[in-house]
Design a protein around this nucleic acid. Structure first.
Lengths: 113, 113
DNA sequence: ACCCAGTACCTTGCACTACAAGGTACTATA
DNA sequence: TATAGTACCTTGTAGTGCAAGGTACTGGGT
């Protein structure tokens, strides 16, 4: 017997939005994975390492991101990511998609209340 | 070589939100699957049959929804769904989750611009 | 010299979701 | 008795996030 899992449902809600959030964060300037995680946590977005590394790799392979290595005095070298032109374009599209979705939900909520 | 697929990315964005949208729609009163689809399309939310039927079944199994059969003069009988008390509770939680997410994105966007 | 904590990268296997494609069955109309 | 329209449902696949684990660099303590 399955039981409705609210935490899971909320996690599902965050899915898919993540890509948009990461592109948004990188658009502010060069940044590396661990710091992206910290930034997102500050805005109450829960993400973990196992999620972000494969995602960054995929976005790099897809041509939305590029990176350079930089030495660190506090540990291993870091990969600093930034958006490519294509990445900036895609971010703009995702922004429109988000706004459209936001509008749809607001419309639905309005009808309901 | 994979290529970034914007439509897919936008579809991913809608994932997880769907459950919330369906509960919202049903909370307005008894309704059956095909009409839920029409309502969501009116608000620019793309959903298809193969998505909604398993989802409704799951929400019923989880105790968030209940339904009754009703004959139709225009075709086969329909399943009219409505929220249970637990369903109303979960909807409230999902609403809060959505608002939190919305807030996070707005905060991120603000920093960026 | 050695170990350990902290940082930063990455991979593998699993669970979950949406979708495409197909199927069943009822009604009304020609 | 076909055909179109409605409404239900299932199966297989692709894509995503996560938990858990692994590698490797730095610096501080003993």
């Amino acid at each position: 017997m399955t039981k409705f899992n609210l935490e899971n449902a909320e996690a599902q809600m965050r899915k898919g939005i993540l890509e948009y959030c990461i592109l948004l964060t990188i658009s502010r300037g060069e940044i590396y994975a661990s710091d992206i995680l910290k930034e997102l946590k500050e805005d109450n977005l829960i993400v973990v390492e196992g999620t972000i590394y494969p995602l960054l790799s995929r976005l790099k392979t897809d041509g939305l991101l590029e990176y350079r290595w930089q030495e660190s005095t506090e540990g291993p070298p870091r990969k600093y990511y930034k958006l490519t032109e294509e990445g900036k374009n895609s971010l703009n599209h995702l922004k429109k998609a988000w706004e459209s979705l936001d509008k749809s939900i607001k419309s639905l909520t309005k009808k309901t209340s």
